[in-house]
């Protein structure tokens, strides 16, 4: 881990710049979120305090400071998607998964999240499944998507 992170740092004139890539990498290594150790590791690798790394991570939506599911489903509920049924799509996922936005299924498999505009406004609703965009998602598509993740 430490070596990997220090490799990332080589790309930058100042190793501190590697904090974001380092946290991203650490999050992947730790199963989608950043436990205490992750901050200690990144801190050690880049000669920063764990507190500093936590402070940076907590600023960005893509870093999770609490345990998340193995998969994430992120539904854009900003205006453009909202105008064409994003709320229905979100609710479809809530029903299908039996959780509210921001929660993780009891089995720890899937985390559902509402997110701000993902930049796919002409093909609403945009749903990022494990960080890959699905375009023009309708409530009808929801069971299949969940099926796929569960399967």
């Amino acid at each position: 881990m430490i070596e990997e992170i220090q490799k990332l740092a080589k790309e930058y004139p100042s190793s501190k710049s590697a904090v974001l890539p380092a946290l991203r990498y650490a999050q992947e290594q730790h199963g989608g979120w950043l436990p205490r150790e992750a901050f200690e590791e990144v801190g050690e690798a880049l000669d920063l305090t764990p507190a500093y790394c936590m402070s940076v991570a907590s600023f960005y939506d893509m870093f999770q400071l609490e345990r998340t599911g193995e998969h994430t489903v992120e539904v854009c509920t900003n205006v453009c998607c909202g105008l064409l049924g994003a709320q229905a799509v979100l609710e479809a996922f809530e029903r299908e998964l039996g959780v509210h936005a921001g929660e993780t299924t009891a089995d720890g498999a899937i985390t559902l999240r509402a997110v701000e505009c993902l930049g796919g406004c002409s093909t609403p609703t945009i749903v990022a499944v494990d960080h890959r965009y699905r375009q023009s998602v309708t409530p009808a598509d929801v069971p299949a998507i969940v099926e796929q993740l569960r399967g």
């Binding site: 946290l23 940076v56 870093f63």
Partner: peptide, 26 residues
């Protein structure tokens, strides 16, 4: 160098972007 953000609209603001690129809160 392609540098990936981490989910913060404000990092589109040029000086926030620079802060973020320096490894700080944006």
């Amino acid at each position: 160098t392609i540098h990936r953000g981490a989910g913060a609209y404000i990092c589109g603001e040029e000086t926030a972007l620079l802060e973020s690129l320096e490894g700080k809160r944006g």
